[in-house]
Design a protein around this nucleic acid. Structure first.
Lengths: 220, 220
DNA sequence: TTTTCAAATTAGTCTTGGCTAAAAATATGT
DNA sequence: ACATATTTTTAGCCAAGACTAATTTGAAAA
């Protein structure tokens, strides 16, 4: 069975929205994510239901099926492999890759992905620190915490971001909080939850709670 | 102005069909090339005419405009750069690349193509020996040689004739050695300089030195 | 329990890019 | 020159994927 580009994008959005704890995903949320209208989403849900990549009972919400998860993970795998390629081989900045990868992920050629994976030396994480599913859809996740949940004097390494908008990534780049940076929490203001952190043992940096909640750290 | 994927494909086909000498391209030929029906082609020609990438007078044929040529060459450039990438970096065989490149050529990102070009070291020819237009659409043509000066196993494309008498052209037409034919030198007889050549990967043909000295080939 | 409201779905329309069948225009043969 | 054949275009239809407007449904408040 084959999915269209639009179907792949919807399924990916549904997969991501499912991950965040909730068992059922709202039509409105999908519409927001896809930048379409709820009416268009209803239509697509019916189609995805017919293709059995989601289990859909109208007005009651939906659940992604095992088959659907495999499709979504396959698309995510392609997206993240292309991101690695763009950064490692073509010297893209890590905040420039998303849009292009969004297009490249829909190229249909199993051989291409297999060869690309080998060429990149079977990477396990993309430039944002997100894990790359293997060809069977398995992921090795790293245990992570949000930076704002860390306590004073705790240390770790930035491994991913939650908000990967270009604006946010540019901000992080500017202040030197790149993926892989070693950080230490120097101070935490109880009042507003803002943090003072030390980056790579040299630069200190002041960060609001909103920003720190979007940074994922692997503690050490 | 932006072209859709379908429009890019039509324009590329029209560009290729135009190159082969004729000033006007037939609807039926485009349909054959695109594997669609003539009715669909008529429709698309109207749209391409409105976008002024071709000059279209119905029932009378069409001509590609300068603007159209630039679009077509841009697409061809992308296609051939991706072919080089697939062969040189991902170890595809030269006959496995076309379908994938056909998809990759529609990725929209000037930066991507610029970086890819640099990464591949600004190649001038694709794996099939076809020239890669530069970012302005200029092609560096391969130097031409007389067919009788070529060696065994060399390949190329017939680009011109020295003697353009009707009799000679009729002869060439009869044996299938038209302008644009891809040829390969299979054997060369030292004694009289006569040649055995393969035309378009299917027909073999014997040719005297006198004849071959009047045929100009662009090597690839 | 009813009423009210927000979320979701349906109905109907649009555009793109296909198709078939029919009509129109050009080309060809006698 | 005229009849026939071929090519091309038009007309009308279909599917995907978007939209707006209207309707239905489930949930929340009175």
């Amino acid at each position: 069975m084959e999915l269209t580009t639009a179907e792949e994008n919807y399924l990916k959005a549904i997969y991501h929205l499912s991950e965040e704890g909730k068992k059922s995903v709202a039509t409105n949320d999908i519409a927001a994510e896809m930048k379409t209208k709820p009416a268009s989403v209803s239509d697509m849900l019916r189609k995805l239901g017919e293709k059995e990549v989601i289990e859909y009972r109208k007005y009651y919400g939906l659940q992604i099926t095992e088959s659907g998860k495999r499709f979504a993970l396959q698309t995510i795998r392609k997206h993240r492999l292309w991101e690695v390629f763009l950064v490692e081989k073509l010297n893209f900045a890590w905040d420039e890759v998303h849009e292009v990868a969004e297009q490249l992920e829909h190229i249909q050629s199993p051989l291409l992905i297999q060869r690309l994976d080998a060429y990149l030396n079977y990477p396990k994480f993309d430039p944002h620190g997100d894990p790359i599913p293997d060809e069977f859809g398995d992921v090795r996740a790293r245990p992570r915490v949000q930076l704002n949940e860390m306590e004073i004097d705790q240390t770790g390494q930035i491994v991913a971001v939650k908000d990967s908008s270009a604006a946010f990534l540019r901000y992080l780049d500017k202040v030197g909080a790149y993926i892989g940076a070693r950080i230490k929490v120097l101070d935490k203001v109880e009042f507003d939850g803002s943090l003072e952190i030390l980056v790579d043992q040299k630069k200190t940096l002041f960060m609001s709670k909103d920003v720190s909640a979007n940074i994922l750290v692997q503690q050490s």
